[in-house]
Design a binder for these strands. Structure first.
Lengths: 137, 137
DNA sequence: CTGTGTGCAAAAGATTTGCATTATG
DNA sequence: CATAATGCAAATCTTTTGCACACAG
């Protein structure tokens, strides 16, 4: 059975209050400020478990680290090719799953969609940015 | 200037003849059979360079290793959540880029789309498969 | 010849895991 | 008090990189 630990609720709260689609590393650093004894392994375990249970959403990009999102309703993301940050893409899209129903004997369960581009901040500076802030695109 | 080396053409040929969206590891193993002296670093360098020059396509939206595809026309993929293999998803989709033009000051350059599900082989066996074959879904 | 590409091994980065210990229910 | 979760460190997995040498143009 699943237990409520301080570490788990801190992990969830960190993803919810950091509004920037943080990586595990960023979540870890945020929690360390109030709970310096937390370990990175615990953060990873809790992030995965929270994603599994549907409390948060895991955004995987193979290229670099995974990001985590506290918004669980259906929406899409866009990543900046310059700074690597992930933003919400506020667009209405057709339901792609209906395009692939019943084809090839494959049991379809969903899809990942990630738009790519250059965020306003990077466009303005025309150079790579390593900041961890989250300006609105 | 770019040079034609045996290793580079072997890398391209391996992606083209392995019809299974191989990972770098699989490409490396395939080449080693005819060219045992090739190194993994060279395979990675060549795969990235071939993807950069548009000869092959790098597929990154999976957890785990990147896959490479010799088909360069616009099409989509589906990955099996059980065995991790990547297949072509033969579907016609609306052009998603038109949904996101000019929003938020973000300069959109494209998108990655990956369907997820369970392939016929894994559905049949109801268990994890580690094979590197590529049965038609 | 010039400098790009290779092979090797080490390094880097993200994530997982084994294990003894802690603390939740 | 049973056992899920933690902290720590080591291990794993994928990919990149530094460097001396080889070879394509």
């Amino acid at each position: 059975m699943q237990r409520n630990t301080i570490q788990r609720s801190l992990t969830l709260k960190a993803v919810q209050t950091l509004r920037c689609h943080p990586t595990a590393e960023q979540v870890y650093n945020a929690i360390k400020e109030t709970c310096p004894s937390i370990s990175k392994g615990t953060v990873y375990r809790n992030l995965n478990q929270l994603a599994e249970s549907g409390h948060i959403q895991k955004i995987e990009l193979t290229d670099g680290a995974a990001h985590f999102d506290h918004r669980c309703h259906k929406h899409y993301h866009v990543t900046c090719l310059a700074c690597g940050r992930v933003f919400d893409a506020d667009v209405a899209l057709p339901d792609l799953e209906r395009f692939i129903q019943n084809s090839h004997g494959f049991q379809f369960l969903g899809y990942d969609l990630m738009f790519k581009g250059i965020c306003p901040a990077c466009s303005a500076s025309s150079q790579h940015s390593d900041t961890t802030e989250n300006p609105t695109p």
